[in-house]
């Protein structure tokens, strides 16, 4: 096979992906950047305004509230999800068919449509007839307004977010646990370490990179939350559950502030890109240390 010929074949094989990813990913991401420096309502021609979208954004208290909400949601989801998922993975790290059944059950929410899940939880959180308030009343506790409460709406979304993503983190931890050399536990046994000491001194350090990876991935997922907010709260009450992607959607498709929506998109992109790059560099350091 002549080399000259080979690159032509390669070009044909790559052509669909080159065109597709080029047109539907690469060009839009650049266009979005350009639009973030323009005022545009999708009807009249776009007008170049320099950094105005960004300066207006940073001067808008709602922007800071939305950012706060997004960080709050992501941080609490991850802080609850990681220890829970790790605990489950440790409990599940043993042979047997029952464990496989458990793994499947914990994973069901991950593969289920967020819209359907949000509908059920919406029903569970119903202040009048919902299952949760009925349970609270059964225990002699007062009812909570859940999604209608400025205090409880966000925790309600967070609880659902943890429930939805728990299985994903657990499965990755489970894979990480299976790479921990068994000899380390045997050595710890000889040293008289109990289960908890083994977890602290063997499992956790060995699982470091996985722990870090799962935390970053879950944070990224949490930052992109949209579906439950759209279905359950529409950002209410009083914007206490308005998050970055929902606000972006409102700006672009309800208020037709395309430039402002693009600026929000790029702020979000900046945050997520920073997280990804930190993830990559730390991972690279770990890999270099091992080899």
């Amino acid at each position: 096979m002549e080399e000259r010929n080979e690159w032509q074949w390669a070009l044909w094989l790559l052509l669909p992906s080159l065109l597709g990813v080029g047109i539907f990913v690469a060009i839009p991401v650049l266009a979005s950047f350009g639009l973030s420096f323009a005022h545009w309502n999708m009807l009249s021609p776009p007008k170049w305004v320099g950094l105005r979208n960004y300066t207006e954004l940073f001067a808008d208290p709602l922007f800071w509230q939305v950012m706060f909400n997004t960080f709050y949601y992501a941080l609490v989801v991850v802080l609850l999800e990681i220890p829970l998922a790790l605990g489950l993975a440790v409990a599940m790290n043993q042979p047997g068919w029952l464990v496989k059944v458990f793994r499947t059950i914990y994973f069901l929410p991950v593969v289920t449509s967020m819209v359907a899940i949000a509908l059920v939880w919406n029903w569970i959180y119903d202040p009048q007839y919902g299952l949760l308030n009925a349970a609270l009343q059964g225990l002699g506790l007062p009812k909570v307004e859940w999604l209608y409460s400025t205090v409880w709406a966000m925790p309600a979304l967070i609880a659902m977010g943890v429930w939805k993503n728990l299985g994903y983190s657990m499965v990755i931890f489970l894979a990480g646990l299976q790479t921990v050399p068994q000899e380390l536990y045997e050595a710890a046994d000889l040293d008289g370490a109990n289960r908890w000491q083994q977890f602290l001194n063997v499992t956790l350090p060995q699982l470091g990179p996985t722990l870090f990876f799962v935390s970053v991935m879950s944070t990224i997922t949490a930052f992109q939350v949209f579906d439950p907010v759209y279905i359950m709260t529409e950002g209410a009450p009083g914007n206490t559950t308005n998050v970055a992607v929902y606000w972006l959607y409102q700006n672009a498709f309800e208020n037709f502030h395309v430039g402002r929506a693009s600026a929000i998109a790029y702020v979000l992109f900046g945050v997520l890109l920073t997280l990804t790059l930190i993830q990559w560099s730390v991972r690279k350091k770990w890999v270099d240390q091992e080899s």
Binding site: I23, F24, L248, S262, L268
Partner: peptide, 24 residues
Amino acid sequence: GLFLLFLATMMIPPQVNIVPLFML
């Protein structure tokens, strides 16, 4: 280089692209 460029597109959150994609 081309392969790395493709990989780099995985870092783009889809939400960043929806406005221009909608226009397209």
